[in-house]
């Protein structure tokens, strides 16, 4: 199989399977997006909580780190006996993966906010909630956003494994290509996943910049 042939085959397969690829892309986006949103909803408040109780911080971060070290395929397989197959299982597994980067960055971001700003705020009569919302969150937002970005790129990659729990996604296309020994079909699944990851990385990078307060950028 020479280069030209492979390229022609790839174009052919993209054209003939376009509908399948498009559906898989939508599923992939859906799984990744829902997982990331859930991970943010868990990790950001948890990160803020452990930044208040530093003794709890290490154990919590350690647990999420252990989740992350479990081989992804094994995690999916491990969840099947409990949750069966389907979207729920995939989303839970992906969420577990996305927890660590967001949790760690939220914790780091909040705890590295300049203590003098917080002391000034408290001394001026801000409530704890006002200190959180007006000082700590705005100042740590760039770091939190960086965590979300890492988690998103990671999740889009790992979501290709959702096919093994019957949740679809671009992994379907790749898996079909592997079993039928069609490299062009593998590429037709892998390429959109890569583009998706890179695209999100770029968008979130821009968001991260936008989240950096103007006055903090000024010093750089």
């Amino acid at each position: 199989m020479n280069e030209e042939n492979f390229f022609v085959l790839f174009i052919d397969i993209v054209q003939s399977r376009w509908d399948d690829i498009f559906v898989a892309l939508q599923e992939h986006l859906f799984l990744s997006f829902i997982s990331i949103v859930i991970a943010i909803l868990i990790s950001v408040p948890l990160g803020i909580f452990i930044s208040r109780r530093k003794k709890l911080a290490e154990p919590f971060i350690a647990v999420t780190a252990i989740f992350q070290t479990v081989p992804s395929l094994a995690l999916f397989g491990f969840l099947i006996p409990f949750l069966g197959i389907g979207n729920t299982t995939a989303i839970i597994a992906l969420t577990v993966y996305a927890l660590l980067p967001i949790l760690r960055n939220t914790y780091t971001g909040i705890t590295s906010v300049d203590q003098s700003s917080i002391e000034a705020g408290r001394g001026m009569g801000m409530t704890d909630l006002q200190i959180l919302m007006k000082i700590e969150v705005p100042l740590s937002l760039p770091v939190i956003m960086a965590g979300v970005r890492t988690a998103t790129v990671l999740t889009i990659g790992v979501a290709t494994l959702a096919t093994f729990v019957g949740a679809g996604g671009l992994g379907d296309i790749i898996y079909r290509g592997l079993t039928s020994n069609k490299d062009e079909l593998v590429l037709a699944g892998a390429l959109p996943a890569t583009i998706l990851a890179l695209g999100f990385d770029l968008i979130l990078k821009l968001l991260e910049n936008a989240a950096t307060p103007k006055g903090v950028k000024a010093k750089k």
Binding site: A120, G123, G125, G215, V216
Partner: peptide, 17 residues
């Protein structure tokens, strides 16, 4: 109480954002 007492600290503590 604190809102009626001005407070100035060594590290200045202006909010950078």
């Amino acid at each position: 109480l604190r809102r009626n007492i001005g407070y100035v600290i060594q590290q200045i503590g202006l909010l950078p954002h």
